[in-house]
Amino acid sequence: MWSELIHVVIPVLLVIAALVAILMRDLLASAVALAVMSLLLSLEFYILQAPDVAIAEAGIGACITTAILVIAIKNTRRMEEEA
């Protein structure tokens, strides 16, 4: 019963995190929200019994994706242009 609940809750959290990531106009905040999404994605992988993938997502999603996103934002600009 609890495992079913968990299988329902984490996807919902994931979708919320993705929504947060795209709603921000501050790209740095978007990158942080994307890191949260990747964190939750990794947790979901973990709970779906895929620890291999969870480690890969941890190493790549949590660390390297955010790092290169931050570097790119640093080399360009932080705010999205006005619509």
Binding site: A21, L34, M37, F45
Partner: peptide, 26 residues
Amino acid sequence: KRNLIKIAMGIVIVEAGVNLFLITLG
């Protein structure tokens, strides 16, 4: 979204969705 970095983030999100899809299939 018109910002190129945002577009890149969109690709990351689609990628995440497809990855999750594969794992849920298994």
